[in-house]
Structures are given as C-alpha cells and as structure tokens.
Design a protein around this nucleic acid. Structure first.
Lengths: 155, 155
DNA sequence: AGTGTTATGTTATCACATAACATAAGCAAT
DNA sequence: ATTGCTTATGTTATGTGATAACATAACACT
C-alpha cells in the first residue's frame, strides 16, 4: 500500500478532516473538501495550478483564488502542508496531532514522504532555545533519492 | 558588528570567494562578482529582482537571466544560499567549508541568520540513514522572532 | 588563426501568487 | 421571516519569481 494513493485511506483522511473541522467550528465547504480530496488522492505534491486543473472537473468556474483560498484554509487547519522547495502542496498524513513537518523529496520518482523524527524535533528545538529564537514554523525538507529509487539504478 | 552589513567583512568574503574559485578553476566573472557583492553587502535576503535592480547600477543591460545565471553559479560554488520559504538569496557567511544550511528567519526585522547546529545535522543525518534516503540537499528554515525582536516588544 | 567551450545578450513566455472589489451563502437574534 | 453581521465565493486584473530558446561574444587551448 503506497502512501497517499490508496482510495480507502483517502476516504479515512477525509472523514477525519470532517470531524476535526466540526470540532473546531471550521467549515469544510464542498470546495475546500474537493481540494483536500484532490491532494489526498495524489501520491505526489501538486502545484496550485495542477490542483486548479483538477478542481475544474468539479467546479468549472474555479480560478486561481479559488484554489489559494482553499489551500489557505486547509493549511491553517493542518490538513495539508506546503513544500517550500517545490512550491507545491501535499495532503497531511496524520492531521489529528499537530507536528512540525519534515519531508523527504525524491528527485527521481518525485514522491514526498513525511518524516516526523522526534530526535530532529528535539535537537532543533534546543538549538532554537539556545539562541533565543521563538519559532512560528519549522521547515525541514530534504531532497535526494529514496530507498526504492537508489536500489533500482546506481548512477 | 552586524552580520553581512559590514563593509570590511564583505571585502574579506569577496577575496575568499576569489581564492576559492581560482582554486577550483571556476570563473568568478565581473557580473558574478557583482551579484555576490550585492548579496554580501545586504543584511537581509534579496529577491532576484531586487538583485536585478541593484545590479543595473553596474550593468545597465542586466535582465532576469543575467541574475539567475549568476545565482546559479554562486549557488553551485556554495557562495550564496537560497532561502526557499522567501524565494530569496543570501551571501554565505563562511563559504570555505561546505555545510548544510540552517536558517533562522525573523518575521519582524527580516534578518536571516545561519544556524549551523551540529546536533541537528547529526540527528537529521541518522534519521535519513535509518530510512535509506540519500540526501542531495537539506533545507532547514525556521521562521519566527529573533531574540532582539522578542525582547523589544511583547505581544 | 582556428576551434570547441563557456559566458552573456535578448526576447518572449511560463509558473506561482495575490490585490481589489462584487456577490452570495450561512447564521444568529429579534 | 427579516434584518444584519460574518464568512465564503466569484471575477478581473496584475504582481512576482523563474526559465526557454536562440543569438552573439569572450575565453582557452593547440
């Protein structure tokens, strides 16, 4: 079972998202839901205009602000993440607990995996504390080759 | 003495850059040198079009590709870094030894500081090893408030 | 001088993101 | 239900960052 590409898994995430938003009094409108659905169904990060193209199937009148507004909401709710080094977005694998995102980006297959290393979290946290820096958001993005790709060929 | 804003320090970096390029057989041409100079002289990260505006003082015919080509070279040589979460560029403080860049970005004063924590390096490295990921480049960028700014006001 | 390589000039265009203002939908209180 | 507020969406235009493609010039080596 590959991450992000499984239909049933995607459904689970959507239900969880609904519950979370409900509990927070946040409105997961049809449009926002569709954008989340698009991201969850994609095994790879999507650019805003990729999302736009897909969204148009359900919302023909969709335009860039449509997507960016939905993304803004979903990012706030922790339901999706933005990959800074790709200008792209991914559905969050486990939106139930807040976490600083750490991503592994394979330059060959394009897949993005969330890392969630506690030790990286901790060491980064103490480094920040040591220099008195109050963090709002932490970005950890590693580009390279995933295990599968580096096993397949050896350049 | 504030990082990046000191003229003599900037000169030192430029001389070092010349030596490094010389040793590698890389050509630090006048244009590339000017772009590096612009970045070193700035206490804050600059966008490509900011650099372009400044570069035009010395190279009136400069256009976007002029800047991006210079940046490409300087990035390859490790003389500048790109800040992914800002789409901006900074001169490298210590280009002599290669290092994974870690940045602290103050959302108030806009200053960017290089962190270089060995422990973050190590833990991230071992986390990557543990999942068989071969890293090409590591991006660590933390946005928040620097010590100075959080001391000045308390919202 | 000749030739291959690397750097620069030039035009156009692509890709990503948001400002600004208009309309509509949801919701609470009378 | 109507009013009135708040939040969400529609729409047009534009701002900002980056690169493709092709032409010319500078360099380095024999």
């Amino acid at each position: 079972m590959k991450p992000g590409s499984c239909h049933t898994e995607c459904q689970q995430v959507l239900h969880l998202a609904e519950r979370l938003c409900e509990g927070r009094g946040a409105r997961l409108t049809p449009q926002r839901r569709q954008v989340l659905e698009i991201l969850c169904a994609s095994p790879k990060p999507l650019g805003a205009y990729d999302i736009l193209d897909l969204l148009k199937q359900g919302v023909p009148a969709a335009k860039p602000p449509t997507v960016y507004r939905a993304l803004e909401f979903l990012l706030q709710q922790g339901l999706v993440h933005r990959i800074e080094s790709l200008n792209a977005y991914v559905g969050c694998v486990h939106p139930d607990h807040p976490h600083a995102s750490q991503f592994l980006i394979c330059r060959d297959c394009g897949e993005v995996r969330e890392l969630e290393s506690q030790s990286v979290e901790r060491t980064l946290g103490s480094a920040l504390r040591a220099c008195g820096f109050k963090a709002d958001s932490r970005v950890v993005e590693v580009t390279g080759r995933c295990l599968r790709c580096s096993e397949q060929e050896t350049p």
